[in-house]
Structure formats: C-alpha cells, structure tokens
C-alpha cells in the first residue's frame, strides 16, 4: 500500500534528484569551466607575481584562489548531496512499511528526512554567497541533524520486532 510517508519520500526524492541534476547541469554548462579556469588562473597568477617580486599581487591572487575554491567545493557538494539524499529517500520510500512504527511516526521521520535533504544542500549553496556566515553554517548543521536523526530512527524501526501496517 502506498502510504503517505512512502509518497512523501518517493515523490520528494524524485523531485530532489531532478533538482540536483538540473542544478549540476546548469552549473556544468554555465559556471564550472569558468570557475576552474579562474581557480587555476588565480593560483598561477599568484606564483607568477611572486616570481616578478610583486608580493601584493601575489597575495591578492592567492586570496582569490582560496575564495574561488571555497565556492567550487560547495557547489559540487550541494549537487552531489542533493542527488545522494534523493536516492536515499527513494530507496527508503520503497521499503518504508518495514519501519515498525505507526504511520504517524513514519510520516514524522519521512518529513524530517525531506526537510533535512532540502535544507542541507541549500545551506551549502547559500554559504557561497556569504562566506563564513554563521547562520548558513547553523542551517547546514540543522539540515544534517534532521537527516541523521531520521536515519537513526529508520534503522531503529527496521530493527524493531513485529510489524505495523
């Protein structure tokens, strides 16, 4: 039977997988190549400026490299985590009736996984707009906490004896 919790996980998972792929596609098409060029170019420029004994330019280019890499790592992380979490949601959606809790608790667990899977990659992307902003780091922690709590509950539900419909 397709319960509410299963629908939430499967439909949400498919939506996140498509979203993650679309995000990765637009990033690969419009941003990634330029970012990689910029990242390599900044580091190269930093070394070249040092060879020309221009310490100020070398330092500025190195900082530019650090900032570009900070963004790049998070953009790739957001893309891969969105798709990875979507896959996890769909897999769990197929077998969620084996989680031995009442449907109400299963829906709560499913919603926690859905909310965490939306918030965590989103917070990672938002960090690229405000480097080091505590609020987005906190949001990422909340998102990952929701996912871990939901998965721990799911593992517990699988291990519990007896079955619930």
């Amino acid at each position: 039977m397709m319960t509410g919790s299963r629908k939430l996980l499967i439909l949400g998972g498919m939506a996140f997988a498509a979203l993650g792929m679309l995000y990765g596609l637009q990033y690969a098409l419009l941003v990634e190549h330029q970012t990689l060029d910029h990242m390599g170019g900044s580091l190269s420029q930093s070394f070249a400026a040092a060879a020309s004994r221009n310490a100020g330019e070398s330092q500025a280019a190195l900082e530019q490299y650090g900032e570009t890499k900070y963004d790049y790592v998070r953009q790739v992380d957001a893309h891969s985590h969105w798709i990875g979490l979507a896959t996890l949601m769909i897999v769990l959606g197929v077998i969620f009736e084996r989680v031995n809790f009442s449907e109400g608790i299963r829906q709560l667990v499913a919603f926690s996984l859905l909310a965490g899977s939306a918030l965590f990659p989103l917070a990672i992307i938002l960090q690229t707009y405000h480097h080091g902003a505590l609020v987005w780091k906190a949001l990422a922690v909340v998102g990952s906490g929701l996912i871990i709590a939901a998965l721990a509950a799911t593992a517990w539900g699988f291990a519990r004896p007896g079955t619930t419909g």
Binding site: A50, A51, R53
Partner: peptide, 9 residues
C-alpha cells in the same frame, strides 16, 4: 619563483 622566471611559472 626563486629564479624570478614568471614565464616558467
């Protein structure tokens, strides 16, 4: 860098 050769860098 040590040799001051930016082109080689």
């Amino acid at each position: 860098i040590a040799a001051g050769n930016a082109a080689a860098v």
